[in-house]
Design a protein around this nucleic acid. Structure first.
Lengths: 118, 118
DNA sequence: TGCGTATACTCAAGTATTCGAATATACTAG
DNA sequence: CTAGTATATTCGAATACTTGAGTATACGCA
C-alpha cells in the first residue's frame, strides 16, 4: 500500500487525536452547528475552539458554511461517524478486558461487577 | 458522553496517528509477525520500530507474545482493521472530491463558492 | 560460563502541538 | 461610518512526539 495513503490516514487519525476534537465531531454528529453553538455546548474557550475547528477543517474532517455572521460546521463524511461508533464498541470491549485483567491481578477478586473506571 | 471515553478514543487515534504505526498495523493485518519480520517488511530502524511498537502496546492496539528469542505481535481487536478499511474507502471519496475541487478552482473564475481560502 | 541474536530502553536534539491572551477580520444593524 | 457580535489568526511559552545513537536485557546454544 502506498505511503501516500498511509500518510493520509495518519492525518485523519491525528485530526481526531485530541479529546476536544473528538468532542466537537461527536457534537456535530446529529447535524450542523455554528461555531458558537459548539463552544457553548462544550464549554470551550473561543480561541481554542477555533483552533481545533481549523485543524478539523485542514484535515477535511468537517466542512463549513457561512450564513451571515456565523459559520456552521458539519461532518464531511458519515464514514467518520461509523469509525467513532466502531471505537465506542471497541472501548467497551477494551474496558471489560482491562477490568478482567485488574481482577486477575488483584486476586482478592471483586468478582464480576465491571465498570470501575480507572 | 464522558470525558474519560473521549480521552480513551483520542489515545487510540493517537496510537494510529503516525504513518509508520499505520504501516505496522496493516502489516499485522493478516496475522502475527515477530518484531524482526515487521522491521524487515517495512525497512525500519530497529530502535524506531521498537518504540512505535511500544506505543501501540501502550495503547493496547497490539498484543505481544514471547516465543524464545523473539516477540510476536498481533492486532488486539479486529475492529481496528475495520476502521482502517473504512478509512481506505474514505480516502478514495476524499480523493475524488479533492480532484473535483482542484478542477473547479483551476477554471478562470472561482466567483461564487463561499470558501475563501485563507 | 560466555557469545550471538532479538528486542527493549534511555537520552538528547529537533520538531510539532497545545494553550491563553491579544488582536484581526467579517458581517449586521443603525 | 460606528458599534457590536461572531469567528479566525498570531504569538510565545509549555508540553509532547519523533528520531538515532548508544546501551541494556533476555534468550539459546555451546
Amino acid at each position: 500500500m502506498s505511503d501516500e495513503l498511509r500518510r493520509f490516514k495518519s492525518e485523519i487519525f491525528q485530526a481526531l487525536a485530541h479529546p476536544t476534537r473528538i468532542a466537537i465531531v461527536e457534537t456535530l454528529r446529529d447535524g450542523e452547528l455554528s461555531a458558537g453553538q459548539v463552544i457553548e455546548k462544550l464549554g470551550l474557550e473561543q480561541a481554542n475552539a477555533s483552533q481545533h475547528l481549523a485543524t478539523l477543517r485542514a484535515r477535511q474532517v468537517v466542512v463549513n458554511r457561512k450564513v451571515g455572521n456565523q459559520v456552521f460546521y458539519s461532518i464531511r463524511d458519515p464514514a467518520l461517524i461509523k469509525v467513532l461508533d466502531i471505537l465506542r464498541r471497541y472501548f467497551y470491549s477494551q474496558l471489560s478486558s482491562t477490568v478482567s485483567m485488574l481482577e486477575e491481578a488483584s486476586q482478592t477478586a471483586p468478582s464480576k461487577t465491571g465498570h470501575t473506571r480507572r
